[in-house]
């Protein structure tokens, strides 16, 4: 009952907390051309753990913004306008905060839970692995 596979089906969180699960889900998303959503999700987690006193932190915030939000890619399309405006403004004013991407991450995660995660659990990639 506590096998990795049993955990993967429990929640998106438990899938992403497992190395093999996250890897397989990433392979699936690459094929579906939406791997950026997962990379963004992990980037948000990584960013939250960064030290605000580290001079790398504002540069990482800017890199996340440029790579996923400013470019009208899939992550940008999934986010609410207000969420994007808030992040843009935070970066412009250099108001760097550990939780500045939290709302954006939640929006992407909700869509991932509703769509990609369920598609993954019925995909041939998953079924072959099982």
């Amino acid at each position: 009952p506590d096998s990795p596979l049993a955990r993967w089906t429990k929640s998106l969180h438990s899938l992403l907390g497992d190395q093999d699960g996250a890897h397989l889900f990433r392979t699936f998303l690459e094929r579906e051309k939406c791997v950026d959503t997962l990379d963004f999700w992990f980037a948000c987690n990584g960013f939250r753990q960064m030290d605000l006193k580290d001079n790398k932190t504002p540069r990482v915030a800017k890199a996340i913004y440029k790579r996923y939000i400013e470019n009208y890619g899939i992550v940008s399309k999934q986010l609410k306008l207000a969420t994007k405006a808030y992040i843009k403004d935070s970066i412009k004013r250099q108001h760097i905060d550990s939780v500045m991407f939290d709302q954006a991450q939640t929006e992407v995660q909700t869509l991932m839970e509703e769509n990609a995660y369920h598609m993954f659990l019925t995909s041939d990639i998953y079924l072959e692995y099982v």
Binding site: L16, A22, A43, G46, R59, K66
Partner: peptide
């Protein structure tokens, strides 16, 4: 000095699950 891409990659990797 690290490029923005390297910093981003490092940030993503730091959050990925590690082998148990």
């Amino acid at each position: 000095i690290d490029s923005e891409d390297d910093l981003l990659q490092e940030c993503i990797s730091s959050a990925m699950p590690k082998k148990k």
